[in-house]
Structure formats: structure tokens, C-alpha cells
């Protein structure tokens, strides 16, 4: 649908291992994806699946173990410190917890001015105050709050500060790491609407990390499902909600409680919990919980392949389960 748009971010075989005393923890394991300009990629999965690590690795908050990252046509896989500083103008992040991501000793205007000062964006204090005022206006913070401190504000307003800080340098791309998870639903909806408005106005590209399936459908163009460091399914949002092909995605989506009476469909309660991501063997990481697992699944890691046009799945049995001709 957006064939003419240029690719903003492309990631190839991106891998991030953490060293632990018991071996390598495969937080992100050979992940590939791309996001077009002005679009949103939703990354979903449960805690510990590597979605946050992926977002952080993409913008060099973690250094990758291997793989390639292209941003806006440039290879940014390896960057020096000065290059990284320049890069951060264009790539920003909104953090999950508005309670711990803001310095409690800085006022709202100081918090929003900080990125502008670091990048020497303004010539004098008048201009700075003006820019801060504009940003506060953009994210819907009343001017009277400029001297307030984070502890005086509620979660929704704090998250608006987080959004204003991310927008301060006019970035092209923002990694949003669970930006609304800590908020009440009525406030959550306000922030989601704000982020959508900003995207339309400024042609922003988002990587939206969340565990909330309804939110991800609402905001994303494409959706990637992760399980224990691996991408297990990738498709555009409409396709993903029309048919889920990977057994994990099926279970994940059927587990979401729907606020309608009798919406409870067949329960696909999957047994067990996440296995350890430390030194995983050559097997499908979902095999131990999968109702369809066979011999093959325990001996070979499935690759992400295009099963239906535009719909990628990493599962040995995907055709068998879904009755798709090879």
C-alpha cells in the first residue's frame, strides 16, 4: 500500500547477546525487518521476549553483537561517538515508565529544554523558552505547568513530557517502548491519539513496542511478533488480524480478554511458560509449549519465510496447521 515510500529503517540479522555466568543470553537473535517512512511497526510479545532490547539495540542504546542497521539510507551498524550524537537528533525514544525516566530534580521546562541545550539548538534563552513553550503546547501541557516538578504531575502528563523530550530535536524516527502501559485506559487513549496526530503532522516513523494486542492493532501498519528473541511472525496489521498462522500468535491473540459479552472464543490456553533464553539449542523456541510440535521442531530452528504473500512465519508446521499448499 505504501510502495512509493522510502525505507526509513532496515535491520538485517540483528543479534544481541548478553553475557551471563551461565552462558550467552540470546535477547535478540537474527532479526530482520524494515519500516517505511511515516509508518509504524508494532513489535509485540510477552515480557522477556527481547522486544525492548531490540528497540534499544536499533538506536544504539545497546551495542549489537552482530548484524546490520540502515537508517535513512545510511549504514549505521557501527558508529563512532560523535556520529552517534548526530544520529540521535534523528532517532529518539519514548520510555515506558514516566515515573522513572524523568529526573525528579528538574522542572518540566528544564526537562524539555535539556535536549535543545545539549544540541545547542537555540541561540539565546528567549528562543529556548519559546521552543519549550511550543513543545509543551504541541503535547498538550498547559503553560502553567512549566515550573512544576515530575512528582507533582500524574502519569499521563509525565508521559507527555517524555513525548515532548523525544520531539524536541525534530527526529524522523522514534522508538516507543511501551509508552502507554503504565497509564489508565482513559489517559492511555489520550496519549495514543496524541502520538497519532504527531505522526500525521510530522511524518514520523515509529517502532511501537507493546504487549497490548488491542493497542498494537490500533496504531500499527505492520506487526512483528517476537518470542524468546526471535521474530516468529510478521505481516501487515490487517492481514495479521485476519489470520494468524504461527501457533504462538494464535495463542497470544486468543488470550486477550475482549470487553464484549460472550466474546470468549475457543480457549487456546497454552501450557507452561517461557523457557530460558540462555544458550538455546538448535530447536524451535516455542516447541516445548506448542501443541503441534513434532520431532523436527526439537532439532532445527525454523526460519522466517513468506508463507502467504506479505505474511512471514517461522514455523516448521505452519502449512500443515493452517492447511496451506506449499
Amino acid at each position: 500500500m505504501a510502495e512509493d515510500k522510502k525505507t526509513m529503517l532496515q535491520v538485517e540479522e540483528l543479534t544481541k547477546f548478553f553475557k551471563t555466568p551461565r552462558g550467552d543470553l540470546h535477547a535478540v537473535d537474527h532479526v530482520n525487518f524494515s519500516i517505511k517512512e511515516g509508518q509504524t511497526l508494532g513489535v509485540v510479545g510477552e515480557s522477556g521476549c527481547g522486544k525492548s532490547t531490540l528497540g534499544r539495540t536499533v538506536i544504539h542504546l545497546h551495542e549489537k553483537t552482530s548484524g546490520k542497521i540502515w537508517f535513512d539510507g545510511k549504514d549505521i551498524s557501527d558508529v563512532t561517538k560523535p556520529q552517534l550524537k548526530e544520529l540521535r537528533r534523528d532517532m529518539q525514544m519514548i520510555f515506558q515508565d514516566p515515573f522513572s525516566s524523568l529526573n525528579p530534580r528538574m522542572s518540566v521546562s528544564q526537562l524539555i529544554a535539556e535536549p535543545l541545550l545539549i544540541y545547542k539548538e537555540t541561540k539565546n534563552s528567549n528562543e529556548l523558552a519559546q521552543r519549550v513553550g511550543q513543545l509543551m503546547d504541541t503535547v498538550g501541557l498547559a503553560a502553567r505547568l512549566s515550573n512544576a516538578y515530575p512528582h507533582e504531575l500524574d502519569g499521563g502528563r509525565r508521559q507527555r513530557i517524555g513525548v515532548a523530550r523525544a520531539l524536541a530535536l525534530n527526529p524522523k524516527f522514534i522508538v516507543c517502548d511501551e509508552p502507554v502501559s503504565a497509564l489508565d485506559v482513559s489517559i492511555q487513549a489520550q496519549i495514543i491519539n496524541l502520538m497519532q496526530d504527531l505522526q500525521e503532522e510530522r511524518n514520523l516513523t515509529y517502532m511501537f513496542i507493546t504487549h497490548d494486542m488491542s493497542v498494537v492493532r490500533h496504531i500499527s501498519n505492520d506487526i512483528m511478533v517476537m518470542y524468546l528473541g526471535c521474530a516468529v511472525e510478521f505481516a501487515d496489521s490487517e492481514e495479521m488480524f485476519r489470520q494468524r498462522l504461527h501457533p504462538y500468535t494464535k495463542a497470544l491473540l486468543s488470550a486477550v480478554p475482549i470487553p464484549e459479552i460472550g466474546a470468549k472464543k475457543e480457549r487456546k490456553v497454552i501450557k507452561g511458560e517461557l523457557t530460558s533464553p540462555i544458550n538455546p539449542g538448535d530447536e524451535c523456541r516455542f516447541a516445548k509449549r506448542c501443541p503441534f510440535a513434532s520431532e523436527e521442531c526439537f532439532h532445527k530452528t525454523p526460519a522466517l519465510e513468506e508463507v502467504v504473500p506479505g505474511h512471514f512465519v517461522a514455523c516448521h508446521k505452519v502449512r500443515e496447521i493452517n492447511d496451506i499448499q506449499a
Binding site: V185, A189, S214, V215, I258, I261
Partner: peptide, 29 residues
Amino acid sequence: YNNTSHPYTQGLFGSIPNFNSKTHRLKPI
């Protein structure tokens, strides 16, 4: 759920992204 009457309850339902169909805008309180 089917005869939502109080404006706050209506607002709560309007704030939840619909899982079964794509809505363009949420209606927050």
C-alpha cells in the same frame, strides 16, 4: 456492556482500542 448508561462507563469503552475491527481514532475521556 449492552446498555451502557453512565457517561463515564461509555467513556471507558470508548477509550479501549477495538480488538476486532480497526478504528481510526479513540474517544478518550
